[in-house]
Design a protein around this nucleic acid. Structure first.
Length: 518
RNA sequence: GCGCCUCUAGCUCAAUUGGCAGAGCAUCGGACUCUUAAUCCGCAGGUUCCGGGUUCGAGUCCCGGGGGGCGUACCA
């Protein structure tokens, strides 16, 4: 994840934009009583255990980023007369006899503490603070003679002790495993980690706001599914004792969201944690986040426009540009994206011209030539998809919408209005990776029942990821699903793309790991 | 699942053909009033991932196990 560090704004630059402007305290006049002590009249002193001297609350007036914004123009050695209160962790300390320097980090950045013995209360205590201790400091904003913006310590209080030593101040943590297990430390010592997760939070927030502006409403559907559906994947199982009921953790929210379209919520979305019982890799975590949305009266063409606009919007807001560099290669996310059929793209990249009338035996031959395993229940559609995925998908730098998938591999998508055997489905491919999957939704209950039936047959033939019939979903369709466009976006992978990182574990705060010590 | 690599002090890393397990940072003690990974002096810090084996002697070689990484497979 360190490959493109130079491209990204620094710690303070990046986080600056998350600062709530209503919290500004600089360069406003100082607060009447900057609170180094608990508010008077509280129960603090009565209830505090004798051995715990740390306060119960603290009132910083200023974020570090605001100091850097507000006082960038100070001359070396200039004093402002402005008193501020900041809080954070002590990340470095440099003692120099009767003068000590510290570096305090809060959520928004780092600021130097300037502590002369003559004016610092309990100077010995200050110089015996540990790296990692939480600290509250009130003092004047100054710039040192050597030009470092600082808070001259007028008073200070330790807010929490770091009993465990922090990692090497220069090298940080290098063992990825330790970084994931002790993310609470990683976030302090790896600027890149904090940058990425801050960015993730903003991306999700922007996504939500943008969808709401398009009149989508956010909903929450069950995580416990009596029948796992909406995707082809192995579910996790669990059990409810009182009902004596086996349940599955959802592999997709799709079928519930479409029930809501039936219910008359015409534009819905869910930012859904989903769970798939599969292997782990650089691009797979067993629990991950999908944005799914459904829009009544829309088809997959409308959804393509929505995706390219949404992604371009996120890039523009997050990075200030739709032109990003990923894996060292240029990537232009601005709309419109190229649209091409799976068949055309397959031909471009493999030279194979096939269609739904190509004999199965011929396709089996192409697969075998390329070492792609073929199973007995694979039909023409599945074989074409395999050929495309193995020869073409990773080569697509994109962004490109790959359209018109075989019906056989798309049991929830609506028949193509002009091409028999195909459905109106597309995937968005960016940097060789699928970031979304969408279709004109299948609305016909009889056709849906037939598709489920084909899935059952696949299951019987040994495909344990094939879908299971969901009678209630069919009943919902019988009440009438209007024309609907649906979309699923892998939020984690999108954040990877926008953040320029290549491992999904770098965008998931606490990725799934084997428990420590085994 | 398979293949390759890796695991040494709290952190980052050394240790010659198999020959007394070391340094920097952090911690602890001391010096220092403008440092920027401050600097300088000193103390302490170890089940070398675990268990076997070979050897006079194993961090090092062999076998087994465990953790992790990468690749591959799986993955709509």
């Amino acid at each position: 994840m360190h490959g493109h560090r130079h491209r990204w704004p620094g710690f303070a630059d990046l986080t600056r934009c998350c600062v709530d402007p209503t919290r500004r305290a600089v360069p406003d006049p100082p607060r009447a009583t900057p609170g180094l002590r608990p508010e008077p009249g509280g129960l603090t002193e009565m209830t505090a255990p004798a051995e715990d001297k740390t306060p119960y609350r603290f009132g910083p007036t200023t974020l570090v980023a605001e100091l850097h914004e507000g006082y960038a123009q100070l001359e070396d050695g200039e004093e402002t007369g402005v008193e501020v209160t900041v809080a954070g962790r002590l990340m470095l300390r440099r003692d120099q006899g009767k003068l000590a320097f510290g570096v305090l980090a809060d959520q928004t950045g780092r600021i130097q503490l300037f502590a002369p013995q003559a004016s610092t209360p309990d100077f010995d205590g200050f110089t015996s603070l540990h790296i990692g201790d939480w600290l509250g400091v009130t003092g004047e904003v100054i710039k040192t003679r050597r030009g470092e913006l600082s808070v001259r310590v007028g008073s200070w209080v330790r807010l929490a002790e770091a009993r465990l030593p922090f990692p090497d101040k220069w090298h940080g943590i290098s063992d990825p495993d330790t970084r994931f297990r002790q993310r609470y430390v990683d976030l302090w010592v790896t600027d890149e980690a904090r940058r990425v997760f801050t960015q993730r939070s903003r991306a999700v927030s922007l996504m939500r706001r943008w969808l709401e502006e398009q009149d989508f409403i956010e909903v929450e559907t069950p995580v416990f599914h009596p029948i796992p559906g909406g995707a082809a994947a192995n579910p996790f199982t669990t059990h409810h004792n009182a009902l004596d009921l086996d349940l599955y953790l959802r592999i997709a929210p799709e079928l519930y969201l479409k029930r809501l379209i039936v219910g008359g919520f015409e534009r819905v979305f869910e930012i859904a944690r989903v769970f798939r019982n599969e292997g782990l890799s650089t691009r797979h975590n067993p629990e991950f986040t999908m944005l799914e949305l459904y829009q009544a009266y829309a088809d997959y063409g409308d959804i393509m426009v929505l995706v390219e606009e949404l992604v371009a919007h996120l890039a523009q807001e997050l990075l200030g540009t739709t032109s990003v560099v990923y894996d060292g290669r240029e990537l232009d996310l601005s709309a419109p994206w190229r649209r091409a059929t799976m068949f055309d793209l397959l031909e471009e990249h493999s030279g194979l011209r096939v269609d739904m009338d190509t004999p199965r035996s011929e396709l089996v031959g192409y697969c075998e030539e390329r070492g792609i395993p073929v199973e007995g229940h694979h039909g023409v559609g599945k074989l074409i998809l395999e050929l495309y995925e193995k020869t073409t998908e990773a080569e697509l730098w994109g962004p490109v919408f790959v359209t018109d998938y075989p019906k056989e591999v798309s049991p929830l998508a609506r028949d193509h209005r002009t091409s028999p055997g195909l459905v109106e489905r597309f995937e968005g491919i960016v940097a060789g990776r699928e970031i979304c999957n969408a279709f004109s939704e299948l609305v016909d209950p009889d056709e849906q029942r037939a598709r489920f039936g084909a899935q059952e047959a696949d299951r019987a033939a040994g495909d344990d990821e094939a879908m299971v019939v969901d009678e209630d979903y069919l009943r919902a369709l019988e009440y009438g699903l209007p024309p609907t466009g649906g979309l699923g976006i892998g939020v984690d992978r999108l954040v990877m793309l926008l953040g320029g990182v290549s491992a999904i574990r770098d965008v998931i705060l606490f990725p799934t790991l084997r428990p420590e010590q085994g």
